[in-house]
Simulated scan of single mutants.
Amino acid sequence: MADAAPKSPSTTPVGVDITRASIARVYDAALNGTNNYEIDREVLRQVATVAPEVADLAWANRNFLIRACRFLATQGQVTQYLDCGSGLPTAENTHQVVQRLQPDARVLYVDNDPVVLAHGRALLEENPQTRFLEADIFDARQVLHSDLARTFLDWDQPIALIQNGTLHHYLGQDYAEVMAAYIDALPPGSFVVVAHFLDPQTTAHSEIARRMEERFTHSPMGSGVFRTREEIRRLFGDTELVEPGLVLCEDWWPDGPRYTPLNQVQECIAGGIGRKG
C-alpha cells in the first residue's frame, strides 16, 4: 500500500507566508515532520533531482547535534546553551538531550520564523529552564544585547553556542565575522558547535556539492552554500577544536561501528566543536 501524501498543517500561524519556503520548514520536511507546506517540500524535490538522498543532510545534522549535546552535558559539564536557529520542535531537541543529563541546564533558543516561534513557545511553556528569543541569529548584537539573553544566561560561566545547520544559509562574505562577534562575547571555558554544508574538494563529491548548492540557492528557499573545510574552520575563530576536529558530521564520535558506507550526501556536511580558552 502506498504511503499517504504529506499533509500540511490544518491551521497557519499568524505571520506565516505559505507561498514562500522557510528554512525551518524545509528542514522539518526532510525529517519527516508535519509542520511544513507544499512550497517547502518542493525545495527538497528540486534538490532530489541531483541528489536523491538530500534528506540525509538534515538527518546527519540532527544526529550530530544530539551527540554534541550529550558530550557538552557530560564531558563538558555545560549547564547553559544558546541555540541559534533552533528550527521546529521535533524529537530530541537541545533542551531534551541536555536536561536529561543536567536537569538544571538552561537553554535559550533563538529564531525569528513565525512557525518556529508559535510551536516552540507552546512546547516550552511548561519548562522553566528553557526560553525562546525572537531575533535574527545572524545579528549577534541583537541577540547578545537582548534583555532575555543578558538575564536568563550567566555570562560569567561557560555557555555552549550552537549554530547547527544555520550558517550555510548566510550568503554574505562576512560569514565568519558573524561568529566572531558571538565568540568574543562568550566567557572562557565556553564551547562553540557548528554544522555546515561542505564542499569536500574531492573529485568524487565536489560536483554533487555544487549541484546541490545550485538547486538550493535557486529554489523557493533561496539559500544553502557549500563551503570548504578551510572556510568552515574560520567559523570557530581561535577556539581549540575538540577531537576529532572538524570532520564529517557522521564521523564526529559516531554511536557505533559503521557497516554501511556513507552516501554522497553524507559526505557533504561537516561539524565540530571548539572550546574557548
Rank of each mutant, 00 (worst) to 15 (best):
F132N: 10
Q75T: 14
V110Q: 02
V107C: 03
V43Q: 05
R62G: 02
V110S: 02
R41I: 03
G85Y: 01
F152C: 07
V47W: 03
P158L: 06
N93C: 06
V78N: 04
A160Y: 00
A149I: 05
L144R: 06
V43H: 05
I66W: 02
R150A: 13
Y81M: 08
D83G: 06
P114A: 12
A135D: 08
L31Y: 06
A122I: 05
D156F: 03
L117C: 10
T79N: 13
T94A: 09
L153R: 04
A105M: 03
Q163N: 14
T166L: 13
H169A: 13
P158E: 11
V97P: 03
L31A: 07
Q75F: 02
I39E: 10
G87I: 07
E92Q: 14
A30H: 04
I66R: 15
L108Y: 05
V78W: 00
P89T: 08
F152T: 08
L44S: 11
V143R: 01
A122P: 01
D40Q: 05
A68N: 11
Q129F: 00
R67V: 01
V116I: 03
P52W: 00
Q77K: 10
L108E: 03
I66M: 04
I39W: 01
V110E: 00
A149W: 00
A149P: 06
Q157L: 08
Q157T: 15
L124W: 09
A91N: 14
L167T: 15
N127S: 15
V110Y: 00
A51L: 08
V116D: 11
D154L: 03
A160C: 11
N127M: 13
L124P: 09
I159D: 00
P89H: 02
V143T: 08
Q163V: 11
W155H: 09
Q129E: 14
G120Q: 02
V115Y: 01
L108I: 06
T130C: 09
P128I: 07
R141Y: 10
G85P: 02
T79F: 01
Q75V: 09
E134K: 13
A48D: 09
R121G: 04
E92S: 11
N127V: 15
D147Y: 08
A51Y: 04
A51C: 15
R106T: 10
L117P: 04
Q46N: 12
T34L: 10
A160K: 04
L101G: 10
A55Y: 09
Q129V: 05
Q75M: 03
N32A: 10
D104Q: 15
Q80C: 07
N35V: 01
G120F: 01
E126K: 15
F138E: 08
A140Q: 05
T94H: 05
E53Y: 05
Q157S: 12
N127A: 12
F152D: 07
A122Y: 03
T151I: 01
L117G: 07
H168N: 15
V43G: 04
R41Y: 08
F132E: 09
N164H: 13
D113E: 06
H168T: 14
Q77T: 14
L117W: 01
C69I: 09
E42N: 15
R67C: 00
A149F: 02
Q129H: 12
A55H: 14
V47C: 06
T166P: 03
H95M: 02
E42S: 14
A60G: 12
Y37K: 12
V107Q: 01
Q157H: 13
V43T: 09
V116G: 09
L148V: 15
L117D: 06
N35M: 08
Q96V: 00
T74P: 09
V110I: 10
L123T: 13
R141G: 12
E42H: 14
